[in-house]
Simulated scan of single mutants.
Amino acid sequence: MWWTYALLSAVFAALTAIFAKIGIKGVDSDLATAVRTVVILTLAWSIAFFKGSIPGLANLTKTNWTFLVLSGCATGLSWIFYFKALQVGKVSQVAPVDKASVAIAIFLSVVFLGEPLSLKTASGAGLIILGTLVLVL
């Protein structure tokens, strides 16, 4: 089932790049990010509300809160820089560089989470970086 969710994530991420490139034309990229954030905020809280997840807030630990807030900050900064990059660059170049985050996440998961780095995973990350360079250069 994770594969289905991951594939849907990839499709919607691709649509995000296309819609954003069209939507930011003639608009300050920070303002565009703010508008996008309000839409996402409304959507995410609506889903949590309708699924009945809101009472789970009481069960969040200090560690949960700390790292969810840090994750939110990282997401916000990612979006700000992504929209700025889309505003001045081509989707066909910006999107692959953004997706290099996969290789970066693999490296960081080894360093900070102690996840094992197999030859297969390292090779895949290397190919992502190589593919990114081919598309950008």
Rank of each mutant, 00 (worst) to 15 (best):
Y82N: 04
L77S: 07
A85M: 01
I80R: 05
A95Y: 13
V91S: 15
W65M: 04
K99T: 08
S101E: 07
L117R: 03
Y82R: 00
I80T: 11
L70S: 08
K99D: 12
A85K: 00
F107S: 05
P116D: 08
F107Q: 04
L108Y: 08
V88W: 06
W65E: 07
F107C: 04
S71N: 03
Q87K: 04
V97P: 06
S71M: 00
V91H: 15
S92C: 08
V97H: 04
G72L: 02
K84W: 01
A105G: 14
A105Q: 09
F112E: 11
S71P: 02
A100E: 10
Q87H: 06
N64F: 13
E115P: 10
S92H: 05
V88Q: 11
L70V: 07
V91R: 15
S78A: 12
V110P: 12
F67D: 07
L113S: 15
K99Y: 12
V110Y: 12
C73A: 08
S101T: 04
F67Q: 09
F112W: 07
A74T: 01
G72C: 05
K90A: 08
P116R: 07
Q87T: 06
Y82G: 00
L70R: 01
V69R: 09
L68W: 13
T63L: 11
A95W: 11
D98L: 13
G72D: 02
F67Y: 10
V69N: 03
S109G: 05
G76M: 01
P96C: 13
G72E: 02
L113G: 14
T63P: 05
K84G: 01
A95H: 13
G89Y: 07
S101C: 04
V69P: 03
I106S: 07
V111P: 14
C73G: 07
F81E: 03
D98Y: 14
V69L: 09
V88D: 12
L68K: 10
W65C: 07
L117S: 03
A85L: 01
K84L: 01
V69H: 03
G89K: 09
T63G: 06
K99N: 11
F112D: 11
L70F: 10
G114H: 05
E115N: 13
L86C: 08
V110C: 13
S92P: 10
Y82V: 03
L86W: 02
Q87R: 06
G72F: 01
C73P: 02
A100H: 14
S78D: 12
V91W: 14
W65Y: 12
W79I: 00
I80E: 12
F67K: 11
V94K: 04
G76A: 06
K99Q: 12
A85N: 01
K90Q: 08
S78V: 05
S101Q: 04
P96L: 15
F83M: 01
I106C: 11
W65S: 06
V97G: 06
A103P: 09
K90E: 13
P96F: 15
G89P: 10
